[in-house]
Design a binder for these strands. Structure first.
Lengths: 109, 109
DNA sequence: CATGGTGTTCGATCCTTGTCGTACAGTATG
DNA sequence: CATACTGTACGACAAGGATCGAACACCATG
């Protein structure tokens, strides 16, 4: 029988449908967070652990940004051993906020 | 010969095409500013003076928000006597940021 | 010209939040 | 078990920005 680890059980996710527009915009307004989302958008799902992103901040700050993205319904996280893998919740988020990801992460600047 | 007033001459506008995504998102992330944009989106152009908006802030703060919207290429302003009329730059802004206004101001929350 | 209305500017304040160091928990590997 | 690696939690700090009051400029109207 497969049992979730205690660590994974503390991982609370928020459904994009429950996210207020204000929360979504606050999450998307940060350049470091958009950089994370762009990275996820251009790679296969569940292939990027938190530590594999090339970010201009220390790991404590990066951890904070991942938490913000999760509570805004933008990413899903899953533990795999010592690493925490990420996935962009593109279809779910697009359903709640049509065009918002396209207008923000599908861009150069 | 018609000459612009000194007051109107100080009104500097920014083209949406010159606006970085970061500036646009910062402007759209504030609820008071979105409320202004929604108001403009649902009325005829050049019919709303700054003082005619029902905002939960004092006029000094409102003036600040209009300045932010102008420098983000989201609104255009024109002086008409003592009043300053506003217009949502929908087509120009949509061209530079397709879907962004639709995802933010065309919404309930 | 005096008064009232519209809107901006300036300085001050307050609050949010992005940032980091450190400590800690969980996992893998020797 | 000892060590190294991955990521989070917590407290502290600093910067940015939203807010306001007061003073000011401009316009309209009597």
């Amino acid at each position: 029988m497969v049992v979730e680890s205690a660590r994974a059980r503390t991982l609370s996710h928020v459904e994009p449908a429950e996210v207020p527009l204000q929360v979504a915009l606050d999450a998307l307004a940060d350049p470091v967070r958009r950089s994370i989302l762009r990275d996820l958008a251009t790679h296969d799902e569940w292939t990027r652990a938190c530590g594999t992103f090339d970010l201009p901040v220390k790991k404590a700050t990066a951890s904070h940004h991942f938490a913000v993205l999760r509570s805004a319904g933008l990413i899903e996280q899953r533990d795999e051993g010592a690493r925490r893998l990420n996935r962009l919740r593109r279809p779910e988020f697009d359903k709640s906020f049509p065009g918002l990801l396209a207008a923000t992460v599908d861009r150069e600047d």
